[in-house]
Amino acid sequence: MVTIDPPGQVSAVRKQVGALWSRLLSLVYPPVCLGCSVIMARHGGLCPTCWSGAEFIERPYCEVLGVPFAHDQGEGAISPAALAEPPDYHRARAVMLYGDIAASLVHRLKYNDRLDLASIMAAWMVRAGDGLVEKADVIVPIPLHRLRLLSRRYNQSAELSRALARLTGKPHGIGLLVRRRQTRQQVGLGEKARQRNVRGAFVVPDAVKADVTGKRVLLVDDVYTTGATVNAAARALKRAGVADVTVLTFARVPDP
Rank of each mutant, 00 (worst) to 15 (best):
V28G: 03
P6D: 08
D221M: 05
V138I: 07
Y89W: 13
T226Y: 13
V2Q: 01
V13S: 05
Q156L: 12
K135A: 11
A236W: 06
V2M: 03
A210L: 09
D206E: 15
D100A: 14
I142N: 00
R91E: 12
V67E: 07
Y154L: 03
A123Y: 03
V133T: 10
G18M: 09
W21E: 02
E63Y: 14
A193V: 04
D5I: 01
R199I: 09
V245E: 06
I142D: 01
R196M: 10
M125G: 02
V230E: 01
V64M: 15
T246W: 09
P60K: 00
S104Q: 05
A207Y: 03
V126R: 02
L132Q: 05
V133A: 10
G173F: 00
L177C: 08
H71S: 11
T246I: 11
R166M: 14
A118W: 00
R153G: 01
K110E: 08
R199A: 12
L218K: 07
L144N: 03
D130M: 15
N112A: 07
D100C: 11
L83I: 07
K238F: 14
P48R: 08
V203E: 15
V38S: 13
S37C: 14
R148W: 08
Q185R: 13
M40S: 12
L160C: 02
H107M: 10
M96S: 14
A243S: 15
M1K: 05
V38C: 15
V220P: 03
G66T: 09
Y224T: 00
Y111K: 05
G190K: 09
I78W: 07
T246Y: 09
V208H: 00
T229D: 02
E63Q: 15
R59M: 10
A128I: 03
D255G: 02
F202H: 03
E63W: 14
V220W: 06
D137W: 06
V230S: 04
Q185K: 13
G190C: 06
V38R: 15
D5G: 10
V106K: 03
S151D: 14
R196T: 13
L219V: 01
R252T: 07
M96Y: 06
L109S: 04
T168D: 10
V133K: 00
T213G: 13
M40T: 10
G44M: 06
F69R: 02
H43I: 00
R162S: 11
I78S: 09
V203P: 02
R148V: 03
L160N: 04
D255T: 13
V133R: 01
L248Y: 05
F69I: 02
D116T: 00
Q156C: 12
L46G: 04
R91N: 12
I120E: 04
L109H: 02
A41M: 04
I39F: 13
G76S: 07
P48A: 13
R181A: 11
V10D: 06
H145C: 04
T225D: 10
R153N: 08
T249W: 09
A102D: 00
G74A: 11
H71N: 14
V212I: 06
P68E: 03
A236Y: 12
L164D: 04
S37G: 02
V140W: 01
G66R: 01
R42T: 07
F56R: 10
P30D: 02
T168C: 11
A193I: 05
V245K: 08
R239T: 15
A19D: 11
L105T: 00
A19H: 09
L218W: 08
D211S: 11
